[in-house]
């Protein structure tokens, strides 16, 4: 839902970042307002996942230039856990297995951290169980998964559902979903995408990172951005995704070549 008067939640300006001294992002610009759904597409290595990791604060990535403002605040100055508590959520492409840590306890600790930040009361074990059982419905997840260790032995689809369950509990303002559709069969994709649609409100925003149109058949984006060589090359509406599906990414190479010389680090 595009509303020009809606408040800006996330403002990315000329963002440069590197990993292991290898520059990956070369000046990303993106403005996300409340109520919007954005899709970032692009080939492997274009910088999509790096963008998501940088926004979440992964320690392996170094910001070398630019800024990210979240609700008027410098997001990059915050520790990863504070970003999460203030409402920035990253759905992992490969959710991590944590043996021995109960999924239920993990969800409760995480949820209470966010609730405190929102000025809500912490939930005790019983109240939390009620909440989590209600939210399980969003992703049609079996309560048995609560008793297991975090993601341990979960199938690809179960891990992704668990990510969306966490999103449902943490109630983020900006949800960044990194290839949430990868490794899902068509039924699981519908369930996961349906969960994302249910959680989208006029007050929050979603940034979908994906390779494929098939996710966008179920979640309709307001904006589609094409990333290449660490920057956003083109921005359009949902038709741009269809065009990509049709034409592939070869035109991106042509457009990049026209931009030659190859991107160099600024500053």
């Amino acid at each position: 839902m595009i509303r020009p008067e809606a408040p800006v939640l996330l403002e990315i300006r000329d963002l440069h970042a590197s990993v292991a001294d290898q520059p990956i992002l070369h000046g990303v610009n993106l403005t996300i307002r409340a109520g919007e759904i954005h899709a970032v597409m692009g080939r492997n290595g274009s910088g999509k996942s790096t963008l998501s990791k940088v926004l979440a604060g992964h320690p392996a990535y170094t910001v070398t230039g630019g800024s990210v403002t979240y609700q008027g605040e410098d997001l990059l100055a915050l520790a990863p856990e504070l970003r999460a508590r203030r409402g920035v959520f990253l759905g992992f492409q490969y959710p991590v297995e944590i043996p021995g840590v109960s999924n239920l306890e993990f969800l409760r600790v995480a949820t209470n951290g966010r609730r405190l930040e929102q000025g809500a009361e912490e939930l005790d074990t019983f109240a939390f169980e009620d909440l989590v059982r209600e939210r399980l419905a969003v992703v049609q997840m079996d309560p048995a998964f609560l008793e297991r260790s975090v993601n341990e032995g979960f199938s690809g689809g179960e891990k992704k559902r668990n990510e969306i369950l966490q999103m449902a509990l943490l109630d983020p303002l900006v949800a960044i979903l990194d290839e949430t559709d990868s490794g899902l069969d068509i039924d699981a994709l519908r369930i996961v995408a349906g969960g994302v649609n249910q959680l989208a409100t006029p007050g929050n925003a979603t940034l979908l990172i994906t390779h494929y149109q098939r996710l966008l058949d179920v979640i309709t984006p307001d904006y589609v951005h094409v990333m290449a060589a660490g920057r956003i090359l083109r921005t359009g509406g949902k038709d741009l995704a269809l065009e990509l599906e049709d034409r592939g990414y070869d035109w991106v190479d042509a457009e990049l070549a026209a931009l030659a010389p190859a991107p160099v680090e600024v500053g």
Binding site: R85, V96, V109, Q166, L170
Partner: peptide
């Protein structure tokens, strides 16, 4: 990092 990205501070995450 996974635990931190869910709002759990580094020290608590280690403990968990």
């Amino acid at each position: 990092f996974y635990l931190q990205s869910r709002g759990i501070a580094a020290a608590n995450a280690s403990r968990l």
